[in-house]
Design a protein around this nucleic acid. Structure first.
Lengths: 147, 147
DNA sequence: CTAATATCAGGACAACTGATATAT
DNA sequence: CATATATCAGTTTTCCTGATATTA
């Protein structure tokens, strides 16, 4: 494929993406209500909801994070009674994590009522068509980051 | 506009965006070569290149960051001799920041030769058409975060 | 013995808040 | 006096690395 000189779009895109990334991150922090879950925590819950059970190490690999970092995210979710761990039946090293019933219930309620800042601005400032475009691009983004 | 129940796309989109955001951020950190500038530093340089001069407070507002946080970013760029400050001619409170000649030169070279990880994966994994789609969506993203 | 998992301890970084000095 | 800018100092958050125990 072309190098950067022949394809300035890619490098401009990369710079733009970096910049927007940081800014969005700061906006999210600034708009976060106290009691809200962090993005890392939400990611873990969604992944557990989708996959059923997983070990901390599996979650860490999925999120491109160190096992030790994931351990502290998981610990915070256990403290909130959103996630529980059970020993693996045959492999004594592993702890199988899953959502608590309380968490599943909260997710179902939340799915309908969730009205956070980011959801709000997406609805308020983007047309349906633009939302669909954004969804397509997020899929592209995932291709970039999922090894 | 519709609420989340009537428009589940927006809230799913928001969650997906949050998750991808964190993952991309970690990938960027993991791929960063020592000596690379941080995203915040790059943002400031690009803005100064576009606008010519700015005060630290103006930059902070533009990046949705506290003046104290921006001050440390600017200090790091001054230490690298990429940015210089000069006192405002009439307003003694302000320091006008601008790029050094060394920085302008480096940006021009870099613009052609830049071959970092993110630029690389964008080129390697997205077609030209997909790159264009991503560019469009970044513009949408900017609309969300630029107040 | 090697590899995988979990966990304890400490550190780096990029943002934050609070307080203060100075100039308009 | 009120406002804006800059800066000093300390804190929080979220990740990191290194070391160690245990089990496969």
């Amino acid at each position: 494929m072309d190098d950067a000189a022949a394809n300035p779009l890619a490098s401009a895109l990369a710079q733009d993406l970096r910049a927007s990334l940081g800014k969005l991150k700061r906006r999210l922090r600034e708009q976060a209500h106290s009691g809200d879950l962090t993005p890392s925590q939400v990611s873990v819950l969604l992944r557990l909801e989708k996959d059923g059970v997983a070990t901390a190490s599996q979650l860490a690999r999925a999120e491109a994070m160190r096992p030790q970092s994931m351990a502290s995210v998981v610990a915070s979710l256990e403290a909130l009674n959103l996630v529980t761990g059970a020993p693996h039946p045959t492999d004594g090293r592993q702890t199988l994590l899953s959502l608590t019933d309380a968490c599943r219930q909260r997710l179902q309620e939340g799915r309908a009522a969730r009205q956070d800042w980011l959801t709000g601005v997406i609805q308020a400032r983007l047309s349906r068509q633009e939302q669909a475009e954004l969804a397509t691009s997020i899929a592209l983004l995932k291709r970039l980051i999922d090894d």
